[in-house]
Design a protein around this nucleic acid. Sequence first.
RNA 1: CGGGGAGUAGCUCAGCCUGGUAGAGCACUACGUUCGGGACGUAGGGGCCGGAGGUUCGAAUCCUCUCUCCCCGACCA
Length: 442
Amino acid sequence: MRLSQYFLPTLKETPSEAQIASHRLMLRAGMVRQASAGIYSWLPLGLRVMKKIEQIVREEQNATGAQEVLMPTIQSADLWRQSARYDGYGKEMLRITDRHDREMLYGPTNEEQITEIFSGSVRSYKDLPLNLYHIQWKFRDEVRPRFGVMRGREFLMKDAYSFDIDAEQGRKAYNKMFVAYLRTYARLGLKAIPMQADTGPIGGDLSHEFIILADTGESEVFCHQDFLNRDVLAEEFDEESDLQPVVDSWTSIYAATDEQHDPARFESEVPADKRVSARGIEVGHIFFFGDKYSKPLGASVSTPEGGDVAVQMGSYGIGVSRLVGGIIEASHDDKGIIWPDSVAPFKVGLINLRAGDVACEAACEEIYAKLEKAGVETLYDDRDDRAGAKFARMDLIGLPWQLIVGPRGLKNGVVELKSRRTEERDEISIDEALSRLSAGQA
RNA sequence: CGGGGAGUAGCUCAGCCUGGUAGAGCACUACGUUCGGGACGUAGGGGCCGGAGGUUCGAAUCCUCUCUCCCCGACCA
């Protein structure tokens, strides 16, 4: 993509409403624009990142055997009356009426809807286990939206729903999601820590929330150092096996948010040099709640013995749009965003330091064409700005690699390849730069 | 939902107290000089001063009502 043609409205000054780093940086980098309190429009750069996160989430869900569906944002009030949550959910639910005065609502979550879909089509234990998910916008009328997309009212969420014949099978489904979540966050370049959680309004007796560490996190987190050193992507799992030992290995070590923190336990269970206290952001929450929804909504299947039994359900949420902010919170510096490779909107920013210079332009055009051909996502800064402005903008939007082409280097036959994260610069030939960027790692 | 604050140019803000031709910096347009870490000069364009009432000869400014946004707390993917 040529920057001269790309809609990237970056800001030099910070809009006054933005308090935390990710919000400031998202506005300054031209990723989003606020429409009203807690509601955002996504501009090209922001949308690219969100789509990448969404795709990683999707791949990890699919890998567990979950199947993607898409449910509507607008739901009927009647459905929610059946689960008795229409009155219970309170003012967070945005209620609307259509032209016939039918009571509708903008879905804050989809347990009722998925359960109805299930019960309308599934009759036998032979159709289980089943896990359906979708990635759809939700609306929760938060009292006080804040922190940009981290606590918006409208947000994009992946929610999965598992259906099983009994609690034992349900626990297996829960464990699969547990591990899939760990893998998802790891692929997003995040250290996520599972913590025992309250089940809140969704209910149930088994629940974990996933917290990523970031200095600006909302809650204080205490955990064992081992969490941070463990690489879940390096571990092999047999999806069909019982994952309980894996889950146990993650949940048996101390980890708690400040609400549930027990200093005495922390100190007795974790050696002093392994104690980590940090700030955290919740980016996912999983629940197993048995027949809480299947019973009132009549989601039952026939058993091998010929009887009828309400299915055991779980629900599993990841805040996709929140993760865009969360990743920035976990990965930025005073110059701007530092994207992990897996979600970077482009892999490399090609900077022509002297637009209009014949040699620079020819070199950039050649490099750009070759990178595009090699499938390397490239944002080519072909604008006629001064060098300083180009550097500042590229640092702000945080692409992992900057390939800097200037008259000074070209005279010696070299370009400069700079890592945004480490700030290491290598002066190398164009060919070497191309081969490094085209290979997996630069 | 309690408490505080703010709405004036795309952004950051001054002007308001004490009513009298709507301003600055950045951004934008043109030209020139510049050109490896957010340059400089000259000339421009851009505003129903959040909205509605009121007071007044005259309202961004004073009064009333209202809408919106932000911050702190209690609650949340």
